[in-house]
């Protein structure tokens, strides 16, 4: 089992698409480029004459390299190990996060709507996100980065089953 032994609840059974790693790496690269684009003008504007300030221009680049290392090298791999999902006979269950983990469980009888979204980067990798919404604004399950065809199929199946077991006690 990939999960740490101290996990408070059972881990969902199925991993997300393997291409999600590539997608997270892409997002890390984009984030790094964005920070770099912000950093360069800041470096040009900084005064460099004072002696105690002479170390200051180095702070930004060092932080940027650290960020890039974490966001590109580390985070995607950890995320791939953490993110899992499962649809059981009664509920939709998913876990996400990389440092702080969030497990969400929604019974099929309480599903209000099911959304499938495909972001710009996701389309490059042929991935999609399923969002299962309930009557509570905080009780949403999001399963990110499933193969698009799987996502469509699962969403249709969930909507169909929700119609049959919907109860009014929301």
């Amino acid at each position: 089992m990939t999960a740490p032994s101290s996990s408070p609840v059972r881990e969902p059974a199925w991993p997300v698409s393997r291409s999600a790693i590539g997608l997270w790496v892409t997002q890390g690269v984009l984030g790094t480029l964005l920070w770099a684009a912000l950093l360069v003008p800041a470096l040009l504007l900084l005064p460099t004459d004072d002696l105690p300030l002479s170390l200051l221009p180095w702070v930004g680049p060092v932080l940027l390299v650290l960020y890039a290392g974490v966001a590109i090298g580390l985070e995607p791999r950890i995320r791939y190990r953490v993110h899992r999902w499962e649809v059981t006979g009664e509920a939709v269950y998913a876990v996400s996060g990389w440092l702080t983990r969030t497990w969400t469980l929604v019974p099929i009888s309480r599903i209000q709507t099911v959304d499938v979204t495909r972001g710009a980067v996701q389309q490059l990798y042929g991935l999609a996100t399923i969002a299962v919404l309930t009557a509570s604004s905080s009780g949403t399950v999001r399963v990110r980065h499933l193969p698009a065809d799987v996502a469509e199929r699962v969403a249709a199946d969930l909507v169909h089953r929700a119609e049959q077991v919907r109860d009014e006690a929301t």
């Binding site: 740490p4 101290s6 996990s7 408070p8 609840v9 440092l99 702080t100 983990r101 969030t102 497990w103 969400t104 469980l105 929604v106 019974p107 309480r110 309930t134 009557a135 509570s136 905080s138 009780g139 949403t140 399950v141 929301t170």
Partner: peptide, 23 residues
């Protein structure tokens, strides 16, 4: 209508977790 369980790295080390009842 849904359960959410959250655990930060610190909570993991302490062996606790936060349970959110979504209503």
């Amino acid at each position: 209508v849904s359960w959410q369980v959250r655990q930060s790295p610190f909570q993991r080390r302490a062996g606790v977790a936060t349970v959110v009842a979504c209503v």
